Computed example of a mutant assay.
Amino acid sequence: MEDKILEKLTKCPLCKSGLFLTGQEIKDLAVSQEKFSICNCTNCGLKFTNPRPSAESIGKYYDFPEYFSHDDKATNLTQFIYQSVRKYTINQKVKFLTSLKPQKGKFLDYGCGTAELLSKASDSGWKVTGIEPNEKARSLANSKLEGKIHATIDKLPKTASFDIITLYHVLEHIHSLRKTLKLIINHLKSDGYIIIAVPNPESYDAVKYGEFWAGWDVPRHLYHFNAKSIEQIGDIFDLQLVQELPMYFDSYYVSLLSEGYADPNQSLVKKYWKAIVAGKKSNQEAAKRAGNYSSNLFIFKKK
């Protein structure tokens, strides 16, 4: 890809340690076909893409029709399945929000995409706000919730506070990791919750597919969180991890994408069947290995 502008990190973006090792190289199989190195922090356990595109240059790596969270319409079978599952999971997410805060209240979704979750939450009685940097997705979101979706967290009033803040598959995309987490926490009420969902590079499907694992998604995924690095988030930002939950559907979807990367010429039927088998196996293995699912959901509160 032309005009690639990379920034090289000299410290871990989470714990600021300079003790990290360069590990495997992963190819961007979705867009550019470029290879990116994954570094492993020996202090906090975080894996991070390094060097990586700068915040100003990374936009072009999102410019492909299969980036489904930025679109409302299904144009192929995989996207149709993604959006069908998303409708179901959104209902479950709203129920979970309400289980945490039965009185409901103010809800911020950071990286809200096209605001499907926020719209459902709003219909259920939550007062909603969204952050979405992608212009196309933000425009679609504001067409549903006019004036409630902002480009950056800096656009929020400094006094704005929320009962629940969610980052569903968002934290791995944020360039200014520590700064942004601090800003987010500043907008959390003293008895509020932060919910973070991230892919797991130590899951069964990650190991099975190796360099073809769709969860790497370099360079769009700047960070790759394991259990140790998630615990470090709690320690660094004075948060208490109160619950960890599996995201069962992710193993099937990630396996489907990974199958396409590993063998682009296989038949559609074979690809879907193998993805179903791999996704089921991933969930079964995670149940044996203390929650090592393809993606996990972490619920934090202030200490």
Rank of each mutant, 00 (worst) to 15 (best):
K271S: 09
D71E: 14
E132N: 01
D163Q: 01
L171W: 01
V269R: 11
E202C: 15
I185D: 03
F68Q: 14
V207A: 15
F162I: 02
N142K: 03
A55S: 10
K16Y: 14
N292M: 11
P133G: 02
K104W: 13
A214K: 06
C12F: 01
Y261C: 05
Y61I: 06
R178E: 12
F64E: 12
G215L: 08
L257E: 04
V207E: 13
G192S: 04
L140Q: 12
T49Y: 09
E56K: 13
N283H: 07
S57G: 11
Q24E: 15
G111V: 01
S54P: 13
I153L: 01
F107K: 01
C112F: 04
E172H: 05
A55G: 04
K144S: 04
S139V: 15
G18T: 11
V207Y: 15
G23A: 09
K301P: 12
D154A: 03
T159L: 09
E66V: 09
K127W: 14
K120W: 13
V218R: 01
L77W: 04
L181I: 11
Y272N: 09
L256I: 13
V254H: 07
C39E: 02
V85Q: 03
E211G: 08
F107P: 06
L222Q: 04
K95G: 12
S295M: 06
M1C: 08
L14N: 00
L245N: 14
G234P: 03
T129W: 12
D154Q: 10
P13V: 02
Y272W: 06
T180R: 10
N265M: 09
S17A: 09
Y293F: 15
E211Q: 03
E172M: 10
G130A: 05
V207L: 14
L188G: 13
T42W: 08
L239K: 09
I58S: 02
F298G: 01
D191K: 07
I195F: 04
I185S: 07
K148I: 10
L118T: 06
S17F: 04
L145W: 05
L29I: 06
P13W: 01
E211K: 13
L117H: 01
T114E: 07
Y88K: 10
C44Q: 07
L140C: 03
L171E: 04
L97F: 09
C15A: 13
G147Q: 02
F249G: 08
M247N: 07
P201T: 14
P157E: 14
I38L: 10
K189W: 05
Q240R: 13
K136C: 10
K301Q: 08
E132P: 03
R138A: 04
V128R: 02
F36E: 03
V277D: 11
G113S: 12
R52S: 11
R178G: 11
Y253C: 02
I184M: 08
S203M: 08
N292P: 08
H70R: 12
I233S: 06
I299S: 04
